[in-house]
Structure formats: C-alpha cells, structure tokens
Amino acid sequence: MNPTQEHNERIAKMTFATVYPHYVTKVEKKNRTKEELHQVITWLTSFDEATIQKLIDEKVTFETFFQKATINPNAHLIIGLICGYRIEEIENELTKQVRCLDKLVDELAKGKKMEKILRS
C-alpha cells in the first residue's frame, strides 16, 4: 500500500515542532530519554542538538527539515511496517524519510538496543 498524493502533501506541510513533543512523550513513557531520542534523530539526519532545537524553534515543515538533513547512508536498512505502510515500498522520498524517523522512534520506545536501532 502506497500513500496518496494528498497524504504525502500533508506530511510535507506538517511541522517538525508539532510532532517532536509526541516523540518525546512516546519514548519517555517507555523509560527512554530525550537524549536517546536526539541520538536517533542525529543518526538519521546528522543534526546536532543545537540544530534540532533551532529547527523546532523555527517551526520548519518536515519538507524543510529533511531538505536540510544529510541522511545517514545506512538509512536504507530501516525496513518494516509503520503506520500501516511498508517503508521499503514507499515511493515518495520525503514520506519515506518521515516514516523512517517514525520507525526509529517506535523502535526506541519498544526498548530495542541502541546499536540495533542505529543499524550498527
């Protein structure tokens, strides 16, 4: 199943700042830390702590967020189902990147070991 064009556009326009608190809540509820969340975000995007905060403060869209990112060369190893979509089958690159981030946050919240999450 592939997301519709409307779905892709909605994701592109969504701001990282509105989703970020949900990521924090999700991982902290499962006894993981904000620092671990940032480690996962940094692994995928190459953003440091200050850049993550700046992008939140600027309320950038996911489109801008991922345009500024340098995606980890091992990101292609992120596969599986998230939000009803199989990541490796998503054709829209931005939607795929957002779903990869969602998958990493999900794995963190599920208690996976960091080295497995970071595909090392």
Rank of each mutant, 00 (worst) to 15 (best):
Phe16Val: 15
Phe16Gly: 05
Phe16Cys: 10
Ala17Ser: 15
Ala17Pro: 04
Ala17Met: 12
Ala17His: 12
Thr18Ala: 15
Thr18Pro: 01
Val19His: 03
Val19Lys: 06
His22Gln: 12
His22Gly: 13
His22Val: 05
His22Lys: 13
Tyr23Ala: 05
Val24Trp: 10
Val24Met: 06
Val24Ile: 14
Thr25Cys: 09
Thr25His: 11
Thr25Tyr: 11
Val27Asp: 05
Glu28Ser: 15
Lys29His: 14
Lys29Asn: 14
Lys30Val: 10
Lys30Phe: 10
Lys30Pro: 04
Asn31Cys: 12
Arg32Gln: 12
Arg32Pro: 03
Thr33Tyr: 11
Thr33Ile: 11
Lys34Pro: 03
Glu35Tyr: 01
Glu36Asp: 06
Glu36Tyr: 00
His38Gly: 01
His38Lys: 12
His38Tyr: 04
His38Cys: 01
His38Ala: 02
His38Leu: 04
His38Ser: 02
Gln39Pro: 01
Gln39Val: 00
Val40Asn: 00
Ile41Gly: 08
Ile41Cys: 07
Ile41Val: 15
Thr42Tyr: 06
Trp43His: 07
Trp43Ile: 00
Leu44Phe: 08
Leu44Gln: 12
Thr45Cys: 03
Thr45Trp: 04
Ser46Lys: 14
Ser46Thr: 15
Ser46Cys: 12
Phe47Leu: 04
Asp48Gln: 02
Asp48Ile: 00
Asp48Asn: 12
Glu49Lys: 14
Glu49Arg: 15
Ala50His: 09
Ala50Thr: 10
Thr51Trp: 01
Ile52Asp: 00
Gln53Glu: 14
Gln53Thr: 06
Gln53Lys: 06
Gln53Asn: 10
Lys54Pro: 05
Lys54Thr: 13
Leu55Cys: 03
Leu55Ile: 05
Ile56Ala: 01
Ile56Val: 09
Ile56Gln: 01
Ile56Thr: 04
Lys59Pro: 08
Lys59Trp: 00
Lys59Val: 08
Val60Asp: 04
Val60Ala: 09
Thr61Ala: 10
Phe62Ile: 07
Phe62Asn: 05
Glu63Ile: 10
Glu63Asn: 13
Thr64Arg: 13
Thr64Gly: 08
Phe65Trp: 13
Phe66Thr: 11
Phe66Asn: 10
Lys68Gly: 04
Lys68Val: 01
Lys68Asp: 09
Thr70Gly: 06
Asn72Gln: 02
Asn72Glu: 03
Asn72Trp: 03
Asn72Phe: 00
Asn74Ile: 06
Asn74Gln: 15
Ala75Trp: 05
His76Pro: 02
Leu77Asp: 07
Leu77Gln: 13
Leu77Ile: 06
Ile78Cys: 03
Ile79His: 13
Ile79Asp: 10
Gly80Thr: 11
Gly80Glu: 09
Gly80Trp: 11
Leu81Asp: 09
Leu81Trp: 04
